[in-house]
Nucleic acid binder design. Structure first.
Lengths: 89, 89
DNA sequence: TGGACAGGCAAGTGAGGACTTGCGTATCGT
DNA sequence: ACGATACGCAAGTCCTCACTTGCCTGTCCA
């Protein structure tokens, strides 16, 4: 299992999580074009590598269908963050 | 205000937050020796620079008293993380 | 079945980050 | 007052990471 904290360190990866929260099950090209509308000018390969990191961190799941690869969000690893440094009961 | 996510990306900085949660208001030397017991062999300057990053992220507050500098934990910036990608109510 | 589309793989490059090194400053004890 | 302590500052080194470049594989449509 990869590092969840390092996965969240990059602003482009956080924007990808934002995008997947608005609309789940998006392909790589969909995510690329939608990132452009958010002001991120990332190439296809760059976005693909970011999704690799997010997948290794357990934050994104990949599902291959034909020539499309759909990506879905999984926010369960984020619970460990606030559970680790608990502010109140 | 610095980047909270980048501050959490380093394992040494996370260990510093762990240490401050166990015992608040520690000096730099206290944190250095306690990190050694956790297996982190970081120099004094390295720990000081890590605390700089944590302070800029709003996770650590510094208070100078004489020749000692006490560090205290502030976990309030962590709320923004789970609030951003909300899993359930 | 040829070509366009969607995506993967791997080496190379450039910038930022973690750490060191060396020196300087202020504070406390004796 | 002198040395030891606790810490800050700044330049330099090394290494990780994000991104590019180039090429390859597999899938759908006409």
């Amino acid at each position: 299992m990869g590092d969840v904290f390092k996965a969240l360190a990059d602003p482009t990866r956080r924007a990808l999580l934002d995008e997947l929260q608005e609309r789940d099950d998006q392909t790589l090209f969909e995510l690329c074009t939608r990132l452009l509308h958010r002001g991120f000018s990332s190439s296809r390969q760059a976005v693909s590598q970011h999704l690799d990191v997010l997948e290794q961190a357990g934050l994104v799941r990949r599902r291959r269908e034909g020539r499309y690869t759909f990506h879905s969000l999984d926010t369960s690893p984020l619970k460990a963050i606030t559970d680790r440094w608990r502010t109140g009961p």
